[in-house]
Design a protein around this nucleic acid. Structure first.
Lengths: 177, 177
DNA sequence: TGGTATTGCGGCGATTTGCCGCATACATGA
DNA sequence: TCATGTATGCGGCAAATCGCCGCAATACCA
């Protein structure tokens, strides 16, 4: 990473966004913070080199922002950073043109490194242990949820589980690794 | 309904590969099975429309195959299917040009849909009910248990769960096919 | 034969689930 | 405009499950 970048940070958690912005600023980057999707698209006076998006922005998904940001800022490198990471959304994000996808918590160095990379790395090693039961359950839920356009009730019906239970499972963070 | 596809299935688990090949064949597709990366690249007499890759092929990664397969078979649609799924490898797979990435276990319909094979008659086909959470969990446990030769303690360690809990889960489901 | 690992199982407190109700929000159509 | 159906968020409570402990009975190997 050589020259300073102009980076957009979008996260509905204002505290987290500010902390991250601060850390990035300390490394010499120019950072703009947005807490909603609208704010993120508002600042288009000067192009951004990179954007760090959260998956959950209030009601809608950060994935929706990707096409707009790419149209507004040619050559922008988009990184998704979320505490509710899943394989289903990771696949979706990369297909939409994101450069990388990281689960929270991630260090600033990790984030900058992810933004710097562009091509696929065929040497990526698969984990030596299979997914934990909790993790597998989380991935499955995310997949079905995506198939139903995020409709909670419909997903609960499809999985034959109680809506309240699904709601509570989604509120929990996925288990690490 | 469009024409049948010529599909390549690459998995070092011969039993699984054959089962999948059989299921795909029953839907009218022409299937070729390979158990190693070399075998997968050997058959290039006629182009494949799609490939289903495991992430773990003996020592090396199925990700390495992607560029070669894409070079050998123009327009091939590659799906990664693995029991050792992770967000990191999912990201790399998509960046390398795979069309999708699914954790095992996945149903045949799910696989074909991921490959884009069922897009056309999505309206006509009643939405097949996804696996229930219990069944998914059961399948996963059985798979890991088999990998550890039925060793309960080792399986519990691999799944990062308490041995007592695994024991109770296994005791619950008598024998259900 | 001693050391190590596996297995089955009882039990207890902490957590999670299943299911209820209720209030709010948002469409669609009479 | 107002009913109606559906989606959502959330508190609460009894029942089920989980995590974790211990203990005894094998199983395996040097």
């Amino acid at each position: 990473m050589s020259a300073a970048w102009r980076i957009l940070v979008v996260d509905d958690d204002a505290v987290f966004a500010d902390t991250l912005a601060c850390a990035l600023g300390r490394r010499g980057h120019e950072v703009v913070v947005a807490n909603t999707g609208e704010e993120a698209l508002a600042d288009s006076t000067r192009p951004f080199h990179a954007a760090i998006l959260d998956l959950r922005l209030g009601t809608d998904s950060g994935l929706r922002l990707i096409p707009f940001l790419k149209a507004l800022h040619p050559g922008i490198r988009i990184l998704l950073l979320t505490g509710y990471a899943s394989i289903a959304t990771a696949v979706e994000a990369i297909k939409l043109g994101a450069v990388h996808y990281l689960p929270k918590p991630a260090g600033v160095d990790e984030i900058l490194q992810a933004l710097g990379r562009l091509e696929g790395d065929a040497d990526a090693r698969p984990p030596d242990a299979p997914m934990s039961l909790d993790r597998l359950e989380w991935e499955h839920i995310q997949k079905v949820l995506a198939e139903h356009d995020g409709n909670l009730s419909a997903t609960a019906r499809a999985l034959k589980m109680h809506r309240r239970t699904l709601q509570r499972k989604l509120a929990k963070h996925p288990v690490r690794a």
